[in-house]
Design a protein around this nucleic acid. Structure first.
Lengths: 189, 189
DNA sequence: GTCTATAGCATGATAGAC
DNA sequence: GTCTATCATGCTATAGAC
């Protein structure tokens, strides 16, 4: 029954991802995750030796999500459209973001303070987005692509934080639109 | 000995603020705070009935810090200078921010997910900065002062998040300089 | 007002039957 | 591979002596 076992793994990671987003790492118990995944508590440890291992699995899943997301933008005509599509992704999740924050941003924020290996793993999703954005600004012909990529991702993450703090999805939408306009500004004539 | 009692209160709040910044609410125990403040554990409860009460006191202190900070900008010649001074505040703390994030941003992020009253209190420091920034953009004569204020604070908070994630103080400095340039762009001729 | 000791609870992790 | 029962720990909070 290796297949069933894989299914349980996936259910555990999916449940963990949801609860880590909603409640954070510290406030989420393995019992909570096990219950949501419909797996007995003691059995969790067969698949993931420690809680940190499970958190690492969530980070790996997020990193894959990021890779899949930017791959999905490949079909768009140009880098400006692709960068705008990136920003719009957060607008699509505006209601969740305005309640619980950006799934990447909040998890990274909580893990950044650590000093064990987990803080390194936590940076991977953000790095994935950032590196891809740098390549897009390069393709656009911009002078300092890295600074621009950091500016874009900063604006997205900061907007997500403020939207969650003020519980205001419209705030996020408005800032994403500002970013669209800004990106259009950068297109060389 | 009412004076000594006040001193203890202040030491407790200061210690709590430092540890909440470095380790977060969930990962900080009252024992840790008591030890850093040099107050016996059981005595903490004489001053603050619950851990949440102490967290609220930290939020109140942060809100006062924000008020004092913007008051300190009042002597500057114009709103553009004042807004630039705001952004520079994070650049001054770049090394701490690149390690533990923005003290306001990380605490707010952790408390945003709650549903008790604490999530309301958590928004106060951010609101204080935001409202002040709106008034400055208004004074500058900008069309949509609130959107601009949100954009500025978002950029600061997002930059702090990325700087902490990548452990890169220079990232923060570079983005603050970008914000200075951007503010200069907005000055009406 | 101050401090010690400890109750009461939740959690991460393990042992071991099936 | 699966699941139950439980240990060990660390925490918030309280009781009560001084």
């Amino acid at each position: 029954m290796t297949e069933r076992a894989t299914a349980k793994r996936e259910r555990l990671v999916a449940s963990a991802a949801e609860l880590l987003h909603r409640n954070g790492v510290g406030a989420t118990s393995l019992a909570d995750i096990a219950q949501l995944a419909d797996v007995p508590l003691g059995n969790v440890y067969y698949y993931y030796r420690t809680k940190d291992d499970l958190v690492r699995a969530v980070l790996a899943a997020q990193t894959e999500q990021v890779a899949a997301m930017v791959d999905g933008f490949a079909g768009l005509p140009g880098p400006a459209e692709r960068l705008k599509a990136l920003a719009s992704r957060w607008d699509l999740m505006r209601d969740v973001v305005a309640r619980y924050g950006c799934p990447f941003g909040t998890l990274t924020t909580e893990l950044n303070r650590r000093d064990d290996g987990l803080d390194r793993d936590a940076a991977m999703p953000m790095r994935g987005i950032l590196d891809w954005a740098v390549s897009q600004f390069q393709e656009l012909g911009c002078a300092e692509p890295r600074d621009l990529a950091v500016a874009l991702l900063s604006a997205i993450q900061g907007s997500a934080l403020l939207a969650a703090t003020l519980r205001d999805p419209e705030l996020l939408s408005a800032q994403v639109h500002r970013l669209h306009d800004w990106i259009d500004t950068l297109i060389p004539v």
